Amino acid sequence: MTVVAFLSVAPVREGSMAADVADAVDALEAFDVEYETTPMGTVVETDDVGELMDAVEAAHRAVDADRVSTFLKIDDKRTATSSAADKVERVEAHLGREARSGSE
């Protein structure tokens, strides 16, 4: 896959946002994307930037709130195919360990 993105969708309000974030993540299921949710956002991968944008719009619209904040960062490497996992593996190769604390 060549398009890797970081997506964060959340309502702007006080209190837990977990249910709203779950709605945004669930909306991604309707699209030809792979994703992994982290505590700060969701990494999304696809071969097509158009598919990504459609998925982002659906995730944004899935949050039912008066105000919704969506952050999107896209890495569209057009000359090579590299997954998010590949990118992490290259960093880990330089570290000589997993890219997380407490790893051995």
Rank of each mutant, 00 (worst) to 15 (best):
M1V: 14
M1K: 15
M1D: 15
M1E: 13
T2D: 07
T2K: 15
T2S: 13
V4C: 14
F6K: 11
F6G: 13
F6S: 05
F6I: 09
L7Q: 01
S8C: 10
A10H: 10
P11H: 05
V12P: 12
R13N: 14
S16L: 00
S16M: 05
V21D: 05
A22M: 02
D23N: 06
A24G: 00
V25T: 02
V25N: 00
D26I: 00
A27W: 03
L28S: 04
F31N: 01
D32C: 11
D32S: 14
Y35M: 01
Y35A: 06
T37V: 00
T38K: 04
T38F: 06
P39D: 04
P39S: 05
P39I: 00
M40Y: 04
V43I: 14
V43R: 10
V43A: 12
E45D: 09
E45I: 07
T46R: 06
D47T: 03
D47F: 05
D47V: 08
D47S: 10
D48F: 02
D48K: 02
V49N: 15
V49Y: 15
E51P: 01
E51M: 07
L52G: 06
M53D: 13
D54M: 13
D54A: 15
A55K: 15
A55M: 03
A55H: 14
A55E: 08
V56K: 04
V56Q: 13
A58K: 08
A58F: 12
A58C: 10
A59W: 09
H60W: 01
H60I: 02
H60G: 03
R61P: 05
A62V: 02
A62G: 12
A62H: 01
A62K: 01
A62P: 02
V63E: 07
V63L: 02
D64A: 15
D64T: 12
D64E: 14
A65M: 10
A65S: 12
D66I: 11
D66R: 09
V68M: 02
S69K: 11
L72G: 03
K73N: 09
K73M: 09
K73Y: 14
I74K: 00
D75E: 08
D76A: 09
T79F: 13
A80N: 13
T81V: 03
T81K: 04
S82D: 12
S82K: 15
S82L: 15
S83P: 12
A84T: 07
A85R: 09
K87E: 05
K87P: 05
E89G: 07
E89I: 07
E89H: 05
R90H: 14
R90N: 04
R90E: 00
R90S: 11
R90M: 06
V91E: 00
V91Y: 03
E92Q: 06
A93Q: 10
H94E: 12
L95T: 08
L95C: 10
R97E: 13
E98R: 04
A99Y: 10
R100A: 04
S101H: 01
S101Y: 09
G102Q: 01
E104S: 14
E104C: 12
